[in-house]
Nucleic acid binder design. Structure first.
Lengths: 334, 334
DNA sequence: ATCGGTATCGATAACGTTTTCGAGTCGCTC
DNA sequence: GAGCGACTCGAAAACGTTATCGATACCGAT
């Protein structure tokens, strides 16, 4: 990697004996330059190591070929997404920039917020956002949302079938004989959290099992915030025999809390998660969970964004299937 | 989050009844504008939601207040580093952009590479790089390297005491009675990998234990590439009773391979890693490893970068201490 | 009144691109 | 040999900002 001395278009033009206008044309592959000239200029560009100034480019043409991906923070889910997205962007002619809104469960504020907007508005052509904040946008700037904020935003979206996944999870617990099933839901402003809870309730209702409202609580999607909720749940005198956690992180957290309270997973408590982040296969016991194809979601989101930026008409909503992956954190109720 | 309609400085100027020059002064807090004017302009800026165009700004002033962090790929180590860096950048007046060179064990090529250089050269004020590639830079662009490429680069650097950490790890294994100790080293062009292997050899020599050269092999630092190496090591008729893996990922991979071969960790094989990424506490058995304060390294790197960009004179090399964290993947040799 | 000094402000010239459009050249056709 | 397209090319005007520097206004002191 070399960070070159800045050489500008006029330098190239001078040493190639043409005008900057001509250089610009060959850089952008515009029509109207003689073949011989093209080759000569390209040669000089190569020799001098010329790179266009993003600033000047963006200023003049309002196009940078840079895409952004905005995550709330770098936790396992966004990291997987990032992987998928970076894989997809390779060779697309775009460059991908990741930035974090820099906070977990709050909204960006003040300087941060404005700076984000500034980035977005001025130096990238579009963004995929993985943070549950409401966005307004205009038609010169494209954004696609992954796992979006609750409510109708009208944004292009890619998500997984959270509702069906939750039904899958709940039915699995039910099929194991569990009746007192707890649910730790994610942050309320996340559409996915809402749908998972809805799926949970639907499955329970379909099975004719009443849900004890004391057993469903919001725990957030982070490891620390879920711990408190899990502790409350397990401290109940008639504690649940199984817990459907809103995501893997809170499931892992729940298992930790259970262990600390002297409970064995899965013997005393069955736990099922959601997401299938890499960590879930690593923990002890390996976590049974609902897989959503996170990397693929990242890739699809980026592909969608690219198409949108290029002006293509496309389905504006992509939903990927979920799947039950059985490991060792659940057991039939004795 | 709102991606605003682009309103420019001249708009602000017009509705505030001043010139763009004055608005610019207000925005940048320059001296020489009446208090009343400052307030009026700020008011208008707020109402209109004005955001400076990064492109124009960078073009004119060669300064964007945006910093970059370039990682080879988004694996656990870089992710932790990212967290530390994002935490540090908050409130610093800078914005942090993460980008990936988009590949694991190779160098970026062609379009990618140039695009990286373009980003770096034109729209960020400096970067921390977490990828073992040689860089050349000029004095208008600052870069600090984390876990740098082998050999003297002259770059400002932050790393941990890899050598001492490796000694720590090896001595621990030695103290457990192990004599046939294997080492899976990281990619050869990583200074850290070189130092860890050197530390390993030093500790062995100091203990008067000869190292069997068939037992030290390069496995790369990724999970997949380490697996093959581990398998080779364990297939030896006189296989090692302990393995010091070059990092946690290869340690985890080694444990997987051992399990697949019907070996129990730690009963039949002790494994120690390096890094203490979050995953190492999660796996089964929990991994004994050498901790380096990764998040703190990210934070220090960013702080150093900020100071450098601000023109401060600073120690140009920061080395953080490592520490043995004992979990359950090692056991005395029976 | 005149003057020097301080505030306060605005015209204006960059910064490095892209794009438009007119000018020049050349080879043809009639 | 005049006229006409088709090709090439470059001059110049943007894009939105920052920095310089001169203009103006106002103040108190002579």
């Amino acid at each position: 990697m070399v960070f070159p001395q800045r050489v500008k278009m006029s330098d190239v033009a001078r040493t190639a004996g043409v005008s900057v206008a001509t250089v610009s044309k060959v850089v952008n592959g515009r029509y109207g330059v003689a073949q011989a000239t093209v080759e000569r200029v390209q040669q000089v560009i190569h020799e001098l190591g010329y790179e266009a100034s993003l600033g000047a480019q963006s200023l003049r043409s309002h196009r940078t070929n840079v895409l952004g991906i905005l995550v709330a923070e770098f936790e396992p889910f966004s990291t997987e997404l990032l992987k998928g997205a970076s894989r997809e962007v390779a060779g697309s002619g775009y460059q991908l920039l990741a930035y974090s809104s820099g906070d977990g469960e709050g909204a960006a504020i003040g300087w941060e917020r404005r700076s984000l907007a500034r980035l977005s508005g001025t130096l990238i052509d579009g963004a995929v956002i993985v943070t549950p904040t409401v966005v307004e946008t205009n038609d010169s700037f494209h954004v696609v949302a992954v796992d979006p904020h609750t409510g109708p935003s009208g944004l292009p979206t890619v998500d997984s079938d959270n509702f069906a996944g939750a039904v899958l999870a709940t039915n699995y617990l039910l099929s194991l004989g569990h009746r007192r099933i707890g649910h730790i839901s994610g942050r309320a402003d996340l559409e996915s959290a809402r749908l998972r809870e809805a799926g949970f309730r639907r499955a329970m209702a379909d099975a004719g099992v009443p849900v004890d409202e004391r057993l469903v609580r919001v725990g957030g999607f982070r490891i620390e915030s879920a711990a408190g909720t899990a502790a409350e749940l397990l401290a109940l005198t008639d504690r649940p025999s199984a817990i459907f956690a809103g995501n893997d992180l809170s499931a892992i957290s729940t298992m930790d809390v259970a262990r600390d309270m002297g409970l064995s997973v899965p013997d005393d408590l069955s736990v099922i998660g959601f997401d299938n982040v890499p960590e879930s296969a690593l923990v002890n016991p390996p976590l049974t969970t609902i897989m959503q194809p996170i990397q693929r979601m990242g890739a699809e989101a980026l592909r969608l964004l690219i198409d949108l930026v290029a002006g293509a008409e496309r389905d504006t909503h992509i939903r990927l299937p979920t799947e039950l992956v059985i490991r060792s954190s659940c057991r039939p109720r004795h």
